Computed example of a mutant assay.
Amino acid sequence: MRFNTLFLLILSGLCLALAQTTYDDCCLKYVRKIGRSTQRHAVQYRQQVTDGGCNIPAVIFTMKKGREFCTDPRERWVKDLMKMIDRKVARNGHKKPTKNQRPYRG
Rank of each mutant, 00 (worst) to 15 (best):
D72T: 04
Q20S: 13
D86F: 13
T62K: 00
V31T: 11
K88M: 08
G53P: 00
R46C: 06
K88H: 13
G52V: 04
C70Q: 04
Q101A: 07
A42L: 06
L9W: 07
S12C: 14
G52M: 08
M63R: 09
R91E: 03
C70S: 06
G93H: 10
I34F: 07
T50V: 12
A17K: 02
K29T: 07
G66D: 07
R40V: 10
E68M: 11
P57A: 01
P73Q: 03
K65P: 04
K99P: 07
Q44P: 00
P73Y: 09
H41D: 15
V89N: 02
F7H: 15
P73E: 02
L11N: 06
V78Q: 05
R40H: 04
K64D: 03
Y104W: 12
R36S: 15
D51A: 10
L8T: 02
K83A: 12
L6E: 15
V89L: 09
P97T: 01
G53I: 01
A58V: 10
I60P: 03
Q20F: 12
F7V: 11
V31Q: 00
Q20H: 10
Y45P: 05
Q20I: 05
K88R: 14
D24M: 14
A17T: 02
C54V: 01
N4D: 12
R87H: 11
K83F: 08
V78N: 06
G66W: 03
G66C: 05
I56S: 09
Q20D: 05
G106E: 09
